[in-house]
Simulated assay, not measured.
Amino acid sequence: MTWNVWWRFGGNWRERATGIKITLETYQPDVIGLVETWAGNGTTQPDELARILGLHAAFAPTSLPPAPDPIEHPDQAGVTVGLGLLSRWPILRTRVHELPHPQRGGEPPTALVATLDHPRGELHVIVTCREWEPHHAADRLAQSEALAELIMDPALDGPLPVLLVGDLNAPPDEPELAPLREVTVDTWEAGGGDPGVTTLDSLLPYAPLEATTLIDRRIDHVLVRPGRPGVAVTVRGAFIAGDRPIDGHYPSDHYAIGADLDP
């Protein structure tokens, strides 16, 4: 499962946190990648959720999206934007992989690469967020190529599939996403998901309507490749979560997306 949980944007992150927690309690994912998650005040959102849900957590900073400067609300001061991972199984190791960004410049966007202690062997998961701005098409392509190389690294080969999850800021048919799609299985398509589904819904009260190339499209993805050549990946189904208000608040400006896989 993956979910862009909208950092501390909107001035209502505390109220939205309840909906995030309840949604994860309801779906009980084995693995979830979090995008636009936060770290601050000696803790992280993944760590707080892991403590409540009985999971394991990891966090890595990233530059996409950049934190607002100046801050919009006092609760944003000194808080880092990042990528997170929650896992039912212990996290054996993590590393941060920087992504190319020659057009945008500044601090790099990243991918969080984690290895989990799955009962059937090491499970490798990559959590990331890719460039979104239309005039940074070269960055989007370079990041897709880098992520394709990363997920296909033979060092990640093993008995289990390799997962890449996150907000890729691209509908499935975006040309710059092609290098990554060519080497992975889109679990939404393989799981029989509705091709017209959206994870960035213009009907949400805080929808980013300025993202005209992304709004009302499926831009969050769970991609997978077999752990070894010649081995098939079985996707039993795919689902959307977080698409209803809880206690009067939608949990995020994105819906979560997930898949049920046979290992």
Rank of each mutant, 00 (worst) to 15 (best):
residue 171 P to I: 07
residue 19 G to D: 04
residue 54 G to E: 06
residue 170 A to Y: 06
residue 221 H to M: 07
residue 79 V to M: 06
residue 179 P to L: 11
residue 170 A to K: 08
residue 238 A to L: 05
residue 238 A to S: 15
residue 217 R to C: 02
residue 138 A to E: 15
residue 179 P to V: 08
residue 207 A to T: 01
residue 240 I to C: 03
residue 124 H to A: 14
residue 97 H to K: 10
residue 58 A to R: 14
residue 179 P to N: 09
residue 233 V to L: 07
residue 186 D to G: 06
residue 107 E to R: 09
residue 182 E to F: 04
residue 108 P to H: 06
residue 58 A to D: 14
residue 63 S to L: 02
residue 28 Q to C: 10
residue 19 G to R: 03
residue 97 H to Q: 14
residue 85 L to R: 11
residue 33 G to K: 03
residue 10 G to D: 14
residue 209 L to K: 11
residue 107 E to A: 15
residue 125 V to T: 14
residue 46 P to N: 08
residue 263 P to M: 12
residue 47 D to M: 05
residue 232 A to M: 02
residue 16 R to E: 02
residue 31 V to C: 06
residue 28 Q to P: 01
residue 90 P to Q: 13
residue 238 A to Q: 03
residue 241 A to V: 06
residue 197 V to C: 02
residue 150 L to T: 07
residue 145 E to G: 00
residue 171 P to S: 14
residue 189 E to H: 12
residue 11 G to A: 10
residue 47 D to W: 05
residue 224 V to T: 11
residue 147 L to G: 06
residue 124 H to N: 15
residue 142 A to Q: 14
residue 180 L to K: 05
residue 203 L to G: 14
residue 240 I to N: 03
residue 184 T to Q: 05
residue 154 P to A: 15
residue 114 A to K: 09
residue 151 I to N: 04
residue 242 G to Q: 01
residue 118 H to V: 09
residue 32 I to D: 02
residue 29 P to S: 09
residue 157 D to V: 03
residue 200 L to Q: 13
residue 156 L to A: 11
residue 88 R to D: 02
residue 95 R to N: 10
residue 84 G to Y: 12
residue 205 P to K: 06
residue 168 L to H: 13
residue 48 E to N: 11
